[in-house]
Design a binder for these strands. Structure first.
Lengths: 209, 209, 209, 209
DNA sequence: AATGAATGAGCCTTCATTCAT
DNA sequence: AATGAATGAAGGCTCATTCAT
């Protein structure tokens, strides 16, 4: 019988990839993009320098992989929560809570991604912009609908959406950098309120838990 | 006889310093902190590499000088506008407009500063955090007062202030990166509205122009 | 599979280290500490610049490694020869011969070390001072003993020891710089005589060869 | 009447030259050849950087000027003392005392010159070698004469002379670096004794003071 | 004669990436 | 698939020297 890549082999590879990503996450989170050397990541992952390049094309790809993870996790979580929500207000609230929840659970990852804006690498900067852009689009669509259905007053939906996302972005940053609030989750309530009110929802009672 | 520091000489020096800062501004704005080499700045400024070091202690100082400029300009402009304002709402509105106005006038500079989060140099990252932190404090004090005087409902003032500043931060970023809105000034109105509403001001007619 | 540190590999590394040290020796000997660039050493060793840093922490360490070699060789040779010697006079003579012999065999190395006094790097200068200081101490102890046992007249033992070592230091320098004497070894006899007489040994027949 | 360079003008120039040399002396003594920057010397001398170059061709010349000073002072002092001496032994003794005396009076200068061997600049190294070489020649001639007249036993006169000078060189170094002996003068007696004995003078009573 | 701003070559060191093993 | 030694380009910074004033 021919030799086949068994599950066991496949899992070993997968595990090594995970070890590398995990190590990268830690090091990037601590030292930032430029402060991180491949050698250090390799050391922390328990592999040789060259091995990294068997799994990831280069430093940028390594970083990008992490960002993608956040990207995917956040967006898919949002999508899931939105499905369960009813009206627009509920959808927006769901989006916010999903984002908060996801980032709150992955502090390291959040740090890696959000604290590296354009400074690092052009490509890297764009990727983050991308993520935020996607979120803005999502929110903007909701806002537009809410405006059209008369639930909130007319407004520049894109600016509003950008502001909306900005509140999250910055609160997460504050949490990462200054440790306030102590847990990201406790900021969810106030943020939801702030933004729903900001958009012009009147009976802005937060949809209860 | 001796080389004397006449007015003429002094002006030339001043001009050279400006040329260097201007060049640095452009290069940093385009390539970010790490992507920028002193050599490139020198070339663009039309001076020799070593000359840069006659004016600024090192790369970090060169960058810092630019950030300081934004820092000072923004904060002083805000302080000025606030004085002219009457009530809290007016003060907040004044702050927002001042920030928008200042950054709108210095696109390059804004780019240099805001697109460099912690990624660059530790010192550099902290400086930006500082600026934003100062703004948050300013706003937080206002919010607190508004809450105490019953003008807006009770809320976590720091989270609110962070959200408040975040809307600006992100809208400016959007303007810098995606070119939306076309001019920063046109975002002022919507932003003011968004935030005042978000804070819970009811008769949130923007203090008319 | 994995790159293993076999004997063959180990030997290659060892050889490369030697090539680097050898190259460094030559270049330092010719141009002195400051006149030597790592690039030049690398070129002469047939490796890339960065490779040097895989073997030695930095320029100072590269230099220090060479000095240490002389240091160790000379001192251990002296210690060995002294053991075989009988009386004090014999020990002093043994020390002198050992030093002469060792340096005579490592002309380049001697040049590297002795022609760099304090001028180079602070750390480097001290290291040489250390070596000479050690020798002086060694000799001083002998002199003291000889004085106490009445073999030589009372005298300032430290000055005498310093003078003693100085004769060697300078003769070696003469040999290195002016090529006189042609071989260091031929200076041994005269030097031994000079110093033993200088110390006041009377029956100063050199312990015969 | 035509404008003539008055004494006053000449003296001013002379004074500035002295200020520069004095400053150079101090800085070189403290930081060594490479550790010294022209700018620092200028600052200490109270002149502008460029001014140094009006008086001395370049850094090397600046250093050389100092060494020359020592050179001339030592050699002329020796020549003077030798004239007053009677026999060979007296001449040698006179030479030694003159050297000790001169260097003892100019500690800084001695430090500058002697602690910079070849390490600094090729030219600089040679100059010191020159000085020492001259001394060796002087002594060698005396030794030769003493041998020919049967006052001391036959020996390699050059090695002996080199050893002779070496004792001084090294004792001065010890004094400069380790502060032993506290004053150079107190080493004169022991050194004279050591060397006269070393050369083989029998009735080596030092010509009393 | 004096100044001090300007120059620019050159240095040490780092690190992403490659490649022989 | 894995290793880790080797590469070498690139970067920040210094400082002897020059030159416009």
């Amino acid at each position: 019988m021919a030799y086949r890549r068994t599950d066991k082999v496949g899992k070993k590879l997968e595990a090594k990839m995970q070890a590398i990503l995990q190590a990268a996450q830690e090091v990037f989170a601590e030292h930032g993009y430029h402060g991180t050397s491949i050698k250090e990541v390799a050391r922390k992952a328990g592999v040789a320098t060259g091995t990294i390049y068997l799994y990831l094309r280069n430093k940028e790809a390594l970083f990008t992989a992490l960002v993608d993870e956040v990207y995917d996790t956040v967006l898919s979580k949002i999508a899931a929560k939105r499905k369960a929500a009813g009206d627009i207000q509920g959808k927006l609230q769901a989006s916010m809570e999903a984002a908060i929840e996801t980032l709150g659970k992955h502090r390291e990852l959040a740090k890696v991604v959000l604290i590296q804006t354009g400074a690092s690498n052009p490509a890297v900067g764009e990727q983050l912009a991308d993520l935020l852009g996607r979120l803005v689009q999502l929110v903007e669509a909701d806002i537009r609908e809410a405006v059209e259905t008369g639930q909130i007053p007319p407004q520049d939906s894109r600016v509003a959406a950008t502001a909306f996302v900005g509140t999250f972005y910055h609160v997460v940053l504050s949490w990462l950098r200054d440790g306030y609030p102590a847990t990201l989750e406790e900021a969810a309530g106030p943020l939801v309120e702030y933004n729903l009110r900001g958009l012009g929802f009147t009976k802005d009672q937060v949809h209860g838990k």
